[in-house]
Nucleic acid binder design. Structure first.
Length: 271
DNA sequence: CATTTCACCTGGTGGC
DNA sequence: TGCCACCAGGTGAAAT
Protein backbone atom coordinates (compact mmCIF):
# COMPACT_ATOMS: atom_id res chain seq x y z
CA UNK A 1 0.00 0.00 0.00
CA UNK A 2 1.30 3.44 -0.71
CA UNK A 3 3.32 4.80 2.16
CA UNK A 4 6.01 7.47 2.22
CA UNK A 5 8.41 5.84 -0.29
CA UNK A 6 5.68 5.13 -2.83
CA UNK A 7 4.29 8.66 -2.53
CA UNK A 8 7.82 10.05 -2.86
CA UNK A 9 8.42 8.03 -6.01
CA UNK A 10 5.16 9.21 -7.55
CA UNK A 11 5.85 12.83 -6.63
CA UNK A 12 9.34 12.76 -8.12
CA UNK A 13 8.14 11.24 -11.37
CA UNK A 14 5.32 13.73 -11.69
CA UNK A 15 7.65 16.58 -10.87
CA UNK A 16 10.15 15.70 -13.56
CA UNK A 17 7.46 15.16 -16.15
CA UNK A 18 5.12 18.03 -15.34
CA UNK A 19 6.75 20.82 -13.36
CA UNK A 20 6.66 24.09 -15.26
CA UNK A 21 3.77 23.02 -17.48
CA UNK A 22 0.38 24.71 -17.45
CA UNK A 23 -2.67 22.79 -16.35
CA UNK A 24 -4.98 22.72 -19.33
CA UNK A 25 -7.96 20.74 -18.16
CA UNK A 26 -9.49 19.07 -15.16
CA UNK A 27 -11.84 16.12 -15.43
CA UNK A 28 -13.42 15.08 -12.15
CA UNK A 29 -14.92 11.76 -13.11
CA UNK A 30 -16.18 10.84 -9.72
CA UNK A 31 -17.59 13.70 -7.75
CA UNK A 32 -17.06 12.23 -4.28
CA UNK A 33 -13.34 11.83 -4.93
CA UNK A 34 -13.05 15.55 -4.19
CA UNK A 35 -12.95 15.88 -0.40
CA UNK A 36 -11.99 19.53 0.13
CA UNK A 37 -13.03 22.42 -2.10
CA UNK A 38 -15.75 22.63 -4.71
CA UNK A 39 -15.61 21.27 -8.25
CA UNK A 40 -15.71 24.89 -9.33
CA UNK A 41 -12.58 25.66 -7.37
CA UNK A 42 -10.94 22.55 -8.78
CA UNK A 43 -11.74 23.61 -12.34
CA UNK A 44 -10.41 27.03 -11.45
CA UNK A 45 -6.93 25.56 -11.33
CA UNK A 46 -7.00 25.24 -15.11
CA UNK A 47 -4.71 27.71 -16.78
CA UNK A 48 -2.27 27.84 -13.89
CA UNK A 49 1.30 26.75 -14.08
CA UNK A 50 2.33 23.74 -12.03
CA UNK A 51 5.31 24.97 -10.06
CA UNK A 52 6.28 21.72 -8.37
CA UNK A 53 5.09 18.33 -7.22
CA UNK A 54 6.13 17.40 -3.71
CA UNK A 55 5.20 14.99 -0.97
CA UNK A 56 4.08 15.33 2.63
CA UNK A 57 3.58 12.17 4.66
CA UNK A 58 1.79 9.78 2.33
CA UNK A 59 0.24 12.55 0.23
CA UNK A 60 1.32 13.91 -3.14
CA UNK A 61 1.08 17.69 -3.44
CA UNK A 62 0.62 19.56 -6.73
CA UNK A 63 1.81 23.11 -6.11
CA UNK A 64 0.28 25.83 -8.24
CA UNK A 65 0.66 29.57 -7.78
CA UNK A 66 -1.65 30.44 -4.89
CA UNK A 67 -3.21 26.99 -4.57
CA UNK A 68 -2.37 23.37 -3.97
CA UNK A 69 -3.96 20.10 -4.90
CA UNK A 70 -3.33 17.39 -2.32
CA UNK A 71 -3.76 13.82 -3.47
CA UNK A 72 -4.28 11.21 -0.79
CA UNK A 73 -3.51 7.81 -2.25
CA UNK A 74 -5.24 5.87 0.49
CA UNK A 75 -5.37 2.12 0.21
CA UNK A 76 -4.97 1.61 -3.48
CA UNK A 77 -4.09 4.91 -5.09
CA UNK A 78 -2.03 5.00 -8.25
CA UNK A 79 -1.22 7.67 -10.79
CA UNK A 80 -0.92 6.90 -14.46
CA UNK A 81 1.08 9.30 -16.59
CA UNK A 82 -0.27 8.92 -20.09
CA UNK A 83 -0.91 10.54 -23.42
CA UNK A 84 -4.50 11.69 -23.81
CA UNK A 85 -6.86 9.80 -26.05
CA UNK A 86 -6.31 6.34 -24.80
CA UNK A 87 -9.00 5.06 -22.56
CA UNK A 88 -8.20 5.67 -18.91
CA UNK A 89 -8.10 2.57 -16.72
CA UNK A 90 -11.11 1.58 -14.62
CA UNK A 91 -11.61 3.55 -11.41
CA UNK A 92 -9.97 6.68 -12.81
CA UNK A 93 -11.51 9.36 -10.63
CA UNK A 94 -9.61 12.48 -11.64
CA UNK A 95 -7.67 13.43 -14.74
CA UNK A 96 -5.35 16.43 -14.92
CA UNK A 97 -4.35 17.39 -18.45
CA UNK A 98 -1.15 19.40 -18.88
CA UNK A 99 0.40 21.37 -21.68
CA UNK A 100 2.80 19.30 -23.68
CA UNK A 101 0.40 16.40 -23.96
CA UNK A 102 0.59 14.57 -20.67
CA UNK A 103 -2.24 13.48 -18.48
CA UNK A 104 -1.95 12.58 -14.82
CA UNK A 105 -4.71 10.07 -14.13
CA UNK A 106 -5.59 9.42 -10.52
CA UNK A 107 -6.77 5.83 -10.20
CA UNK A 108 -8.34 4.28 -7.13
CA UNK A 109 -9.95 0.89 -6.99
CA UNK A 110 -10.78 0.45 -3.35
CA UNK A 111 -12.01 3.89 -2.54
CA UNK A 112 -10.76 3.94 1.00
CA UNK A 113 -9.04 6.90 2.56
CA UNK A 114 -8.29 8.31 -0.88
CA UNK A 115 -9.25 11.64 -2.33
CA UNK A 116 -8.26 15.04 -3.64
CA UNK A 117 -8.21 18.32 -1.74
CA UNK A 118 -8.03 21.76 -3.37
CA UNK A 119 -6.44 24.17 -0.93
CA UNK A 120 -6.20 27.92 -1.29
CA UNK A 121 -3.29 29.94 0.04
CA UNK A 122 -2.03 28.66 3.36
CA UNK A 123 -4.90 26.24 3.90
CA UNK A 124 -3.62 22.89 5.16
CA UNK A 125 -6.57 20.54 4.76
CA UNK A 126 -5.53 16.96 5.45
CA UNK A 127 -1.94 18.05 6.03
CA UNK A 128 -2.91 19.81 9.26
CA UNK A 129 -1.71 18.03 12.35
CA UNK A 130 0.79 15.79 10.62
CA UNK A 131 3.97 15.08 12.53
CA UNK A 132 7.35 15.59 10.86
CA UNK A 133 8.14 13.42 7.84
CA UNK A 134 9.63 10.12 8.91
CA UNK A 135 12.40 10.24 6.31
CA UNK A 136 13.86 13.44 7.68
CA UNK A 137 13.39 13.27 11.42
CA UNK A 138 16.48 13.31 13.61
CA UNK A 139 17.10 10.99 16.56
CA UNK A 140 16.43 13.61 19.24
CA UNK A 141 13.12 14.68 17.76
CA UNK A 142 12.17 11.04 17.27
CA UNK A 143 12.82 10.27 20.93
CA UNK A 144 11.02 13.37 22.14
CA UNK A 145 7.89 12.65 20.13
CA UNK A 146 7.66 9.03 21.23
CA UNK A 147 8.83 9.32 24.80
CA UNK A 148 6.56 8.04 27.54
CA UNK A 149 3.76 6.84 25.32
CA UNK A 150 1.60 3.97 26.45
CA UNK A 151 0.65 2.86 22.95
CA UNK A 152 2.22 -0.19 21.35
CA UNK A 153 5.27 0.89 19.38
CA UNK A 154 3.68 -0.35 16.16
CA UNK A 155 0.67 1.92 16.67
CA UNK A 156 2.88 4.87 17.59
CA UNK A 157 4.94 4.48 14.40
CA UNK A 158 1.78 4.49 12.29
CA UNK A 159 0.23 7.44 14.12
CA UNK A 160 0.51 10.25 11.55
CA UNK A 161 0.37 12.98 14.18
CA UNK A 162 3.53 11.62 15.80
CA UNK A 163 5.38 10.85 12.60
CA UNK A 164 4.13 11.21 9.02
CA UNK A 165 4.47 8.64 6.27
CA UNK A 166 4.78 5.26 7.97
CA UNK A 167 2.16 2.57 7.45
CA UNK A 168 1.85 -1.12 8.01
CA UNK A 169 4.62 -2.30 5.72
CA UNK A 170 7.49 -0.07 6.78
CA UNK A 171 6.62 -0.17 10.45
CA UNK A 172 6.82 -3.96 10.37
CA UNK A 173 10.12 -3.85 8.51
CA UNK A 174 11.68 -1.24 10.80
CA UNK A 175 10.62 -3.11 13.94
CA UNK A 176 12.14 -6.31 12.63
CA UNK A 177 15.44 -4.64 11.85
CA UNK A 178 15.49 -3.04 15.27
CA UNK A 179 14.69 -6.33 17.01
CA UNK A 180 11.59 -4.90 18.68
CA UNK A 181 8.29 -6.67 19.08
CA UNK A 182 5.43 -4.58 17.65
CA UNK A 183 3.30 -5.07 20.76
CA UNK A 184 5.84 -3.52 23.12
CA UNK A 185 4.65 -0.32 24.73
CA UNK A 186 6.87 2.63 23.86
CA UNK A 187 7.40 3.66 27.48
CA UNK A 188 8.84 0.23 28.27
CA UNK A 189 11.45 0.45 25.53
CA UNK A 190 14.95 1.65 26.42
CA UNK A 191 16.40 4.78 24.91
CA UNK A 192 19.08 2.73 23.18
CA UNK A 193 16.48 0.49 21.58
CA UNK A 194 14.46 3.49 20.42
CA UNK A 195 17.58 4.88 18.82
CA UNK A 196 18.05 1.56 17.03
CA UNK A 197 14.47 1.84 15.84
CA UNK A 198 15.07 5.34 14.54
CA UNK A 199 18.10 4.22 12.58
CA UNK A 200 16.27 1.15 11.27
CA UNK A 201 13.31 3.23 10.14
CA UNK A 202 15.48 5.77 8.35
CA UNK A 203 17.41 2.97 6.64
CA UNK A 204 14.31 1.09 5.50
CA UNK A 205 12.73 4.23 4.08
CA UNK A 206 15.93 5.25 2.31
CA UNK A 207 16.28 1.81 0.72
CA UNK A 208 12.66 1.79 -0.39
CA UNK A 209 12.97 5.25 -1.94
CA UNK A 210 16.09 4.11 -3.78
CA UNK A 211 14.22 1.04 -5.02
CA UNK A 212 11.41 3.28 -6.23
CA UNK A 213 13.92 5.44 -8.01
CA UNK A 214 15.33 2.48 -9.86
CA UNK A 215 11.83 1.35 -10.79
CA UNK A 216 11.26 4.79 -12.27
CA UNK A 217 14.41 4.62 -14.30
CA UNK A 218 13.11 1.38 -15.81
CA UNK A 219 9.56 2.44 -16.52
CA UNK A 220 10.47 5.83 -18.07
CA UNK A 221 7.00 7.26 -18.30
CA UNK A 222 8.43 10.21 -20.17
CA UNK A 223 9.56 8.06 -23.06
CA UNK A 224 6.05 7.43 -24.32
CA UNK A 225 5.12 4.19 -22.63
CA UNK A 226 2.21 4.46 -20.26
CA UNK A 227 3.63 4.92 -16.84
CA UNK A 228 1.96 3.32 -13.88
CA UNK A 229 3.29 5.09 -10.86
CA UNK A 230 2.67 3.79 -7.42
CA UNK A 231 4.07 0.43 -6.57
CA UNK A 232 7.42 -1.27 -6.52
CA UNK A 233 8.80 -4.13 -4.56
CA UNK A 234 11.36 -3.74 -1.91
CA UNK A 235 11.99 -7.26 -0.70
CA UNK A 236 10.22 -7.42 2.61
CA UNK A 237 11.76 -9.42 5.45
CA UNK A 238 8.62 -9.83 7.53
CA UNK A 239 5.69 -7.95 6.02
CA UNK A 240 3.25 -10.41 4.46
CA UNK A 241 5.40 -13.40 5.41
CA UNK A 242 3.23 -14.61 8.26
CA UNK A 243 3.68 -18.36 8.77
CA UNK A 244 6.95 -18.45 6.82
CA UNK A 245 10.40 -18.89 8.37
CA UNK A 246 12.34 -15.87 9.63
CA UNK A 247 15.14 -15.03 7.21
CA UNK A 248 17.54 -14.56 10.12
CA UNK A 249 16.83 -17.51 12.40
CA UNK A 250 14.27 -19.75 10.71
CA UNK A 251 11.63 -19.41 13.42
CA UNK A 252 8.08 -19.33 12.07
CA UNK A 253 6.89 -15.74 11.85
CA UNK A 254 3.87 -14.86 13.94
CA UNK A 255 1.11 -12.36 13.60
CA UNK A 256 -0.41 -9.93 16.04
CA UNK A 257 -3.32 -7.56 15.56
CA UNK A 258 -2.56 -4.02 16.72
CA UNK A 259 -5.03 -1.22 16.22
CA UNK A 260 -6.97 -3.37 13.81
CA UNK A 261 -3.89 -3.92 11.66
CA UNK A 262 -2.14 -7.21 11.34
CA UNK A 263 1.54 -7.14 12.10
CA UNK A 264 4.07 -9.85 11.32
CA UNK A 265 7.10 -10.40 13.53
CA UNK A 266 9.70 -12.97 14.53
CA UNK A 267 9.10 -14.14 18.12
CA UNK A 268 12.78 -14.94 18.52
CA UNK A 269 14.53 -11.97 16.86
CA UNK A 270 12.06 -9.38 18.16
CA UNK A 271 11.67 -8.92 21.91
C1' DC B 1 -5.54 14.82 26.06
C1' DA B 2 -4.06 9.83 24.57
C1' DT B 3 -5.57 5.70 23.09
C1' DT B 4 -8.63 2.27 21.00
C1' DT B 5 -12.15 0.78 17.92
C1' DC B 6 -14.80 0.82 13.92
C1' DA B 7 -16.72 1.84 9.25
C1' DC B 8 -15.62 2.72 4.79
C1' DC B 9 -14.79 -0.17 -0.24
C1' DT B 10 -13.55 -3.52 -3.81
C1' DG B 11 -10.58 -7.11 -5.86
C1' DG B 12 -8.24 -11.23 -4.96
C1' DT B 13 -8.09 -15.54 -2.56
C1' DG B 14 -9.37 -19.95 -0.84
C1' DG B 15 -12.71 -23.27 0.56
C1' DC B 16 -16.35 -26.11 -0.87
C1' DT C 1 -16.59 -24.35 -12.72
C1' DG C 2 -18.98 -21.21 -9.73
C1' DC C 3 -20.25 -19.20 -5.60
C1' DC C 4 -19.36 -16.76 -1.43
C1' DA C 5 -17.24 -15.59 2.93
C1' DC C 6 -13.34 -13.38 4.15
C1' DC C 7 -9.30 -10.44 4.18
C1' DA C 8 -6.39 -6.38 3.18
C1' DG C 9 -5.44 -1.46 5.24
C1' DG C 10 -5.22 4.52 5.49
C1' DT C 11 -8.03 7.70 7.50
C1' DG C 12 -11.15 10.03 10.41
C1' DA C 13 -14.82 9.91 13.53
C1' DA C 14 -16.60 7.99 17.65
C1' DA C 15 -15.96 5.72 21.87
C1' DT C 16 -13.29 4.83 25.99
Amino acid sequence: MPELPEAETIARALHSALAGRALRGVDLRRRDFLKTGSPRRLRGLAGRRLEAVSRRGKSVVFEFAGARLVLQLGMSGRVQLARPGRRPPPHTHLVLAFAGGWEARCVNTRRIAAGAHVLAGEELGPLAGLGPDADGIGPDDFLARLAGRAAPVKAALMNQTILAGVGNIYSDEALFRAGLRPTRRVRDISRAALLRLHAALRAVLAEAIAAGGSTLADSTPFAGAEGELGYFTLSHRVYGRYGQPCLECGTTLRRAVIGGRSSTYCPRCQR
